[in-house]
Amino acid sequence: MPMTRLYVSVLLIAVLLGNNACTHYYYAPNTLQTPFLQEQHDARASLGMISGDEFNGYEVHAAYSPLKHAAVMVNHFQVSSGSGSNVSSSEDSGAGHLTEVALGGYYPVGKYTTFSLFAGWGAGSVSNNFDFDVKADLSFQRRFLQPTVAIRGKWARFGAALRFNQLRYVKGEVDVEVGEPDLTIIRNIERASPLFVPEAGLSCGFGYQAFWADFNLNFCNIRDRDDYHFAYSTVGLSFSCQLDYFWRER
């Protein structure tokens, strides 16, 4: 676990120091959560920090199985970029959030492995600030199908997921003074929406009984990604609590 933290910190620092030229992103993948569910009334909640190229944020996630083989999942994701502290409002910055719910089924195979499939719907927005109060605010909705495989042992766990998103931009308020290349990028997004965005996620975690720490890697791959300024990847470190541990008879 210290190794993971070290890795995340190094990444965070690299990201923070590495880049002065600010890229404005119009989408970033949140963590593809792999709820480690095995039976009815399994529940978990997690809180994580997330980071990508030039942006950072946090994420909350909860999953609960009200019925055998069926589950609900709620995710919220919030990131921002740009140095807000030391400079005036004329500084370049950006922020985005996404909230989503998903319903799904899971099927445990053997003692350690669970397959699951979630279908979800979410809404979010991204707003980018440029010089002189020049803004581009976009809001979007996303629906997705997410097949997942999760493997859980006593001390460690591993999850892999794919997420097939249909990303639909709903509204945009765009000051044309955002200038190029962003104006072209935004027009590309408007023209291409709804976009098909496949994503992949890996997570591995360590913990014991109720408390776990997971390291997550997420990728979004879309054709002609540079035409849309979508962030390619995010990394995250989350801490989760398997709530069922407290109410389950052992």
Binding site: G105, R143, Y169, V170, G172
Partner: peptide, 28 residues
Amino acid sequence: KLRIALPLFGLLLLAAACNKKADFNYYY
């Protein structure tokens, strides 16, 4: 029945999301 209904409901949710084109307002 409910067990099957829940994921089905999820799929319905997916289908229900409307499919309008993006409508951006550009201003100067």
